[in-house]
Structures are given as C-alpha cells and as structure tokens.
Design a protein around this nucleic acid. Structure first.
Length: 870
RNA sequence: GGGUCGUUAGCUCAACUGGCAGAGCGUUUGACUUACAUUCAAGAGGUUACAGGUUCGAGUCCUGUACGACCCACCA
C-alpha cells in the first residue's frame, strides 16, 4: 500500500483516536499486571470552559509524559475529569437566567440547580471532547466530576472529620467580600494592584473639644468606627487616651484607646479603628473588646448602621461623607497617593474587607506535614526554585475561609437548631426546627481531594491500592497554592501518604510578543483554530518546544506553521523510505554484513540522539529533547543520509541496497518512536506504513541507547566529507556555476583519500561533480582552479572559464582569515601552561587535533594564495 | 518591604553537569535535482543588557547595577 502524497490530519486524527481508544490502549490495563504504575490526575478543567491555549499546553505536556511512560512499559493512567467551578459556572447560569429576565433570587435555589445540572449534562463534556481532539490519551472509563456522587461523599466526609477534629470552625471574622459576586472569597482570590488613590486627612472631634488628626483612604468606613487609637508611647497623643471621640456626622461616642499596633510614623500617627471593615482594626478591636460594626450590605451599599447614608453605594457615600465633613469643618486635606488596592481575581471589582459569619479551616496543623513531605524529599518540586515559594507560603499560612454564598457546589453538611445548636454530619438531625446551612464549599476544597477521591477514596478500592500515591502532578505555577499545596495537605492528612511524588510546574502562555493573553489586548491564541488549520501535532510540538520548565512560554504562532511543515517533512521521509522498500519488503533486513561508512555514521548519530533524549526526559527537559529529534531527522537524516542513500539505492549492489534500506528504516522508525509523545497522530500513521513490530506505536518500546552503534571514526570522517561537499557547493555558488552544469574535480588526498570512493559518490550525487580524480604526490597543483580545503584534503575545481583570479584570491583570503583566527585561538590556549596542565585531557587533545587540522588547512590555503600571486 | 524569573541574531526562542554561541521565522542569491517548492542549496546577520569577580577557560558560577515580568506581605 503506497502512502498518500500528504498527511491528511483531518481524517487521520479522529480515526486513529477512536481506534486507540477502542483497543483500550489508554487504559493502564493495557500493560502487564505487574507493570509499574505511572499516574497523572488531570488538572480538571472547568465544566464551563472552552479549550484555551493554557489547556493546550498542559495537555501537550501531560500526554507526552503519559505516552512516554506507556512506551516504557509502565501501567500508564491519566485520569481525566472536570471541575464544577462554583463561581464560574454559577455566573454563567445566572447570565442565562438574566437573558430570560429573571434574577437568581426569583428563580430560587432548586430550579437554579436543576438548570445548572441540565446545562452540565448537555454541554459539560465539550471541554473533554476538545482534549480528545488534541490526542489526550486519558482513560475515559475512569472520568470523574468534582460534584459526582463519589466525590461529593468524599468531600462531605472530609469536612465532617475536620470539624470533629476541631479544625473547622464557624464564626464571625473579617473576610474578603466580593460585592459583585456577593460571596466571601479566600485570600488567594484577591489580587493586590498598585493604584493611584486618595488619602483623606481629617480631624477626629473629641467630645470635650479639640480633635485628633486621622488619615484614611476609605472615608465611608468612618461610619463604622468604634474607637480612635494612638500608640501608648506617643507624646503627642498620650494625654488623650481615655477621652471620648465623636464619629463624624453620626456623633456616636467612641473611646480613644492606646494600642502598640499603631504605627506612629504612618499618616498622622493616630488611627481610626473600624473592626468591621479592616483586618488590622479587627485585631485591635478584639484586644480592646470593641464593638464590631458592619456598615455595608452584601452589595456594598451602606446599611442602616450608616445612619443618613444608608442606601448609598460605598463610593457615593465616600464623596458625600467627605463633602459633609468639609462643610462641618472637619477636613484637613486630600492627597494623591499610590497604594495597593485589593481586587477580585475574577470580577476585578474592589474587594471589601467585611466582618461576616463564615466557616474556616485552621490550616496550620495540616501545613506542618505538607512542609515536611517536601523537606524530606517525599515530594519533589520541579523546577526546584518553587520549593522556596512553597515553604514561604505554608510557613505563613492563615486560616482558610471555606464557605461561599453560592448555590452551585458542595453544600456544607451543617444544620442549625432552634436554640442555636450546630449539627455537622452526614444526615440532617431529627427533631423539629432545624435549618440546613445554605452555603457551599470553596471549589478548591473538593479539588484538594482530587488525587485520591477520583480513585475511590474513602473506599479502599483496587484503584486506590494500585494507583495511589500518584506519580506526577503536572500543572501551572499559578495554582501552586490554590491547588497543589492543598492537595498535599489534605492528602497527607487523610490518606497518610503524599498524593504524588513529583510536582512539575509549567509557565503561563503568552503571545508572540511576550504579552499576557488578555481580552482587552485581543491577543488570544485559539488552539482550535490552529488545530483546524494545521492539525493537533504541530500545535502540540510548538507548545512543548517553545519554552523551558517553569518559565512562561511566548508562543509565536508562526512556529505552528513551521511545525506543520515538519510534519509534512516527516511524511515525505516516510514516503521515500516506503517507496524504496517497494517490492522488497521482508527482504530488507536480511543482510547482516558490516555497514558502509554512511550508515555507520547515521546510526552513531542516532544513538547519540537516543542517549540525549533519554537523559533529557529523565530531567523533564522535554522541549530540548523535541528540538534535538527535530534537528536530527531534518538536518542529519533527511538532508544528508537520505540524499546519500540514493547512491546505494540506485546502484546495483543488492547487499548495499538492502543494508541501506535497513538503516533507513531503523533510523526513521526509531525517530518516529522518539517523536510519538510529542506528535502522536502523524507518528502513528507513519509507523503503520513502516516495517514495525507490534500493533501500535503507542505500545512500542521507548528507544534505548546501544553502545555498539557509537562510531567516532565514522563521525569524524563523515564530518570531513560533509565539509568537502559544502565547500564544493559553496564554490559553485560563489562562481555562479550554472546549476545544471557538471564539473570535474581533482583531489589531493589527505585523510579523505582513504575514502575516495565515498567522497566521489557523494560529490557526484550532491554537487554534480563527475570524474573526481586523485592527484599524486608529485603532481603539481592544477591551474585555473577554485580550491576547497578541509583539514589536509584539497579539492580543485577546474573552472577556468569562470575563475576570476581576484575573486578567487578574495575567497581564499577570507578563508585564510577565518582559519588564522581559529588557529590563533587554539594556539593561545595551548601555549597557556595552565590550560595544558589543568584542563581535562580530552579537552586538550581536542584542541591539539584542532590546531593540527587548522595548520594543515592554512598551509594549503597560503600556498594557493602564493601561487595566485605569481 | 521581602522574594523569584528574564535580558543571547531584525523577531520568537535554544544551548544537558562551565569547554569552538544554535534553530525557526524574516532577509539576500540560486534551483521545480523523479520523497517533499509544505522543498533544496549557498550567504548575510552576535562585544550573549552593563560593571566587577572566580576559573586554564564563563552565555553558563559569584557580587553589584539597569531595565522588564511575576509572586508574597494587614502599610491607615
């Protein structure tokens, strides 16, 4: 069966994917029962999501890891699934209802959830189908969803256990309130941006007359003040401690207190204390038993505690308040300042610190184990610089606000009794008057259980036994805290084991100019669009080879096109081999006599490639490995070996032809296997056309180095021959020898003289030189020739009609200058006794050889130049 | 205020444990050479941000500076 002219990825991808899946090769069961497991739990994409370039990156890397492990004979399990993504999904469904003109509250919880589930069933699989399109070899029979029954049970059990262990508590605390989403969010979901704002300085009136100057950036919070604080040692204000102040515009009486937390250097040195709206003040308030006043509603409009300002939006209130204070003569001045503003990671709106009753997890006890697991090496983080970041965060961790005022999520299993009792458990308590908790858990709480909940925990399932701890956690560094750290904490706490052995962190995808992908810049790179245009393989190869571990990758979309060309090039190499295999299939591998120089050379190079690739895979340097395979196949195999192979293939030595075919097949088939984890589709299709063992390249063995193939002599000789060919081509080009014109040449043999047959064949085939003849030692240099010098060998090209003596002289002078420069460098090093005595022997020897070769070349070039001057 | 990463060809990026700085794209010239014009050949293009240091030898290790990006932190 001959191969089509080009690779039709559009039809091949779906066909191959279905075939792989139907044969069960994505399942760990495809490996022998005693095979070592290799497990990745997928970072579950949001059900609402559509494949974006960030997904494409992680899929490319993880599928590469999984396919590599599978080819190594491991029981590879890539467990797929999706995340219910509380906030993101809820917002989407809210928008749907809004389009129908109904608010979430009008709809009610029950219908809202019904609709969300219906939507999830209908569209939630879309993102996973897009993963399939990329070639992701996940075990779809093990697919999980964070809100499915098993996982929900795990979440509930974990919550209850933590509550019973006294680690989960409920209470009023200052939280980050998102007025747009109307829910609390965790510290991690708040971003701090340096922005220009205003600092308002004003007089805090005292009841008995006088005032204290106080500064704030949020005048509306004055309405919630319950004290004015000064530093106990501050001479300026010490005498005022114990007096009473009056809240501006409300005239509510509050104390003047002394607290060491007040920074005398900041602002006016006196502090308005608003325990209900400032974390700092909340602490002070606790120490002094101050009332905690919340002056805002859920949407951050002012509430009844704001007196006349009730109902105003917080920013309207700020202006109104200030102008009223101005009128009352209380203001001093307003200054522009740069300060950091807390904004919602999702909506971008300003987060309001607000006191609120929420569920919290005391994280510190869990953090200890998570720190130890990395410190003692049970978990390794790659690249290891992230280890420090991880330590720093866990060492300073604060309690985690678990509750969210949403509907879509795991409902907190708590009930409130008529007398204020709290019941936490699997089932509702019996008896009258209990009401269920309305809030759900932070999405990341369920994600934190992902590596073991997906394997059946808390049941002692066979999967849990076999595949836990998992092997590799591959994800972006942006969710090291959100997700990775929490999986480690919860995994250790509940299973007693690390959830995974290695954490591999990749960077963020940026555009071709290094800019963040953003809607406002409109610079998104749509993976689907590029897969439509070029197929999945070029996209995958580009993503993996464009960067280095842990660093952001700037994706230059032109590289996708370039790698599509690479796919075609591969296809053409295979076509060539296949074509030449022709009717000889089966015959091609019978000849076991020693190989020719060319074949020994390419096999030696191939072995070096295999060696490098193995080392790089072991160090997670996938990008470098991919680039090297690419360069080998294109630059060495196709440009040189295939071209040279035509000598034997078109010759009449049957043995030589067969040995060459054997090498062609071996090198290409091996290269294809090396490439399979990067580009699964085209490699499978090609592999099927080549002679191979086994059913699928997916399960073919990963290439191993073979010491026998190393052949430094063949490499050295081929390097010289290749240089001679390049030199002849260069001379032809410089002298504008018409492309079709055949020329003759003479060789003054140095080392290359031992391989005159090979050289003759090569120049004949590759640069249209016929009649390469040998010059005897006593022969004088031929006249009117262009000269090509490589080491101690010289090729003379009789181009009398084209040679311009001046031009040839310039050419040789340039050559001489280059040689001299390199020779000087080598001689300089060798003259240095320190170098000779201290550098490794091999390095010195290489430099010696180098010098000798350069000297030989230079001598010849000089002689030629001298003869031209005559 | 702490910390991390980056700065290499016009652009986007490589360079494993220090050992002759590479690729793709772009650019110049030539070629439809029966696997491939989705290609091939030849060329141009670099003081590896800057200043010191260590070393026989530094893009690579150390110190500092500049610029850029990011992370953490309760700066009224």
């Amino acid at each position: 069966m001959t191969m089509p002219k080009t690779f039709d990825f559009a039809s091949a991808e779906g066909r191959l994917y279905d075939w792989w899946e139907q044969n069960g090769w994505f399942r760990p069961e495809a490996a022998p029962e005693d095979a070592e497991p290799f497990v990745i739990s997928i970072p579950p994409p949001n059900v609402t999501g559509a494949l974006h370039i960030g997904h494409a990156l992680f899929v490319s890397i993880e599928d590469l890891m999984i396919r590599h492990a599978r080819m190594q004979g491991k029981a590879a399990l890539w467990l797929p699934g999706s995340d219910h993504a509380g906030i993101a999904t809820q917002l989407q469904i809210e928008r749907m209802f809004a389009e129908e003109g109904r608010s979430k509250d009008e709809v009610g919880r029950e219908e809202f959830l019904e609709r969300t589930w219906a939507w999830k069933e209908r569209y939630g699989g879309e993102i996973l189908n897009q993963l399939r399109r990329m070639g992701a070899s996940c075990d779809w029979e093990r697919e999980r969803f964070t809100l499915d029954d098993g996982l929900s049970g795990a979440v509930r059990d974990v919550f209850i256990a933590l509550y019973e262990q006294g680690l989960v508590y409920r209470g009023p605390r200052l939280v980050n309130w998102s007025p747009g989403l109307q829910t609390a969010v965790s510290d991690l979901e708040v971003e701090h941006a340096e922005e220009t704002g205003k600092m308002y300085l004003f007089r805090y009136p005292l009841k008995d007359g006088g005032h204290i100057p106080v500064a704030t950036t949020r005048p509306e919070t004055i309405l919630g003040d319950t004290a004015v604080a000064v530093h106990p040692d501050d001479e300026r204000y010490r005498h005022l401690v114990g007096r009473r102040a009056l809240v501006p515009m409300l005239n509510r009486e509050i104390p003047v207190i002394a607290d060491p937390q007040v920074d005398r250097e900041k602002g006016s040195g006196a502090l308005k204390v608003t325990p209900g709206h400032d974390p700092n003040d909340f602490d002070i308030g606790e120490r002094h038993d101050l009332p905690v006043l919340n002056v805002m509603n859920r949407d951050a409009s002012m509430n009844e505690n704001a007196g006349p300002y009730a109902g105003l939006d917080r920013f309207e209130c700020r202006e109104k308040m200030w102008s009223d204070m101005e009128a009352a003569g209380l203001t001093i001045k307003v200054e522009d300042i740069r300060h950091s503003v807390p904004r919602s990671q999702r909506g971008g709106e300003i987060i309001e610190p607000m006191v609120s009753v929420q569920w919290f997890l005391r994280v510190k006890p869990l953090a200890q184990g998570a720190l130890e697991a990395v410190r003692d090496g049970r978990i390794r983080i790659v690249p290891d610089r992230f280890t420090r970041v991880y330590y720093h965060w866990l060492e300073n961790i604060e309690d985690w606000c678990l509750s969210r005022q949403l509907w879509w999520g795991h409902r907190i299993p708590a009930w409130y009794g008529p007398n204020g009792e709290i019941h936490v458990g699997r089932d509702a308590p019996t008896g009258e008057g209990w009401t269920a908790e309305e809030d759900v858990l932070d999405t990341w709480f369920s994600s934190g259980l992902w590596p073991f909940s997906t394997l059946g925990w808390p049941q002692e399932t066979a999967d849990l036994q076999r595949f836990y701890p998992t092997t590799m956690m591959e994800t972006g560094y942006d969710i090291l805290f959100f997700w990775v750290a929490r999986m480690i904490m919860l995994g250790l706490w509940f299973t007693g084991e690390v959830p995974f052995r290695t954490v591999y962190l990749h960077g963020m995808v940026r555009d071709g100019l290094g800019r963040k992908i953003s809607k406002t810049l409109d610079n998104s790179i749509d993976p689907l669009e590029y897969m439509d245009r070029y197929g999945a393989d070029p996209l995958r190869f580009t993503l993996v080879t464009s960067g280095t571990p842990g660093n952001d990758v700037n994706v230059d979309v032109k590289r996708i096109e370039g790698n599509w060309r690479f796919v075609n090039k591969l296809w053409q190499m295979a076509s060539f081999v296949k074509l030449n295999l022709g009717g000889h299939e089966g015959e091609w591998q019978h000849d076991s006599s020693p190989h020719d120089l060319y074949s020994r050379w390419i096999l030696s190079r191939l072995d070096t490639l295999v060696r490098n690739a193995n080392r790089q895979f072991d160090s997670y340097l996938y990008g470098e490995a991919g680039r090297q395979v690419h360069d080998f196949l294109w630059r060495e195999f196709a440009d040189w070996y295939i071209e040279i192979s035509k000598i034997a293939l078109h010759g009449d030595d049957v043995g030589a032809r067969q040995r060459t075919l054997q090498t062609l097949v071996h090198a290409l088939e091996t290269g294809t296997r090396l490439l399979h984890p990067f580009m699964p589709f085209v490699t499978e299709e090609i592999w099927q056309h080549l002679p191979h063992e086994g059913e699928t390249i997916m399960m073919a063995p990963w290439p191993q180095p073979d010491e026998e193939l190393q052949d430094p002599d063949a490499e050295a000789i081929m390097d010289a021959l290749v240089e001679l060919v390049r030199g002849v081509r260069n001379a032809r080009s410089e002298y504008n020898v018409p492309h079709g014109r055949r020329i003759s040449a003479q060789l003054r043999p140095g080392l290359a003289g031992n391989h005159i047959d090979e050289l003759r064949a090569m120049v004949g085939r590759l640069c249209r030189v016929e009649n390469l003849t040998l010059l005897a030692t006593e022969d004088s240099d031929p006249e009117g020739c262009a000269t090509v010098v490589v080491n101690d060998s010289v090729v003379y090209l009789p181009l009398a009609d084209l040679i311009d003596v001046d031009a040839e002289r310039r050419r040789l002078e340039k050559e001489r200058d280059q040689l001299q420069q390199r020779l000087q460098r080598a001689q300089g090093m060798l003259k240095n006794e320190q170098f000779v005595s201290r550098a490794p022997e091999a390095v010195v020897k290489r430099e010696l050889d180098n010098r000798d070769e350069l000297r030989a070349s230079l001598e010849i070039v000089d002689a030629r130049l001298a003869s031209l001057r005559d």
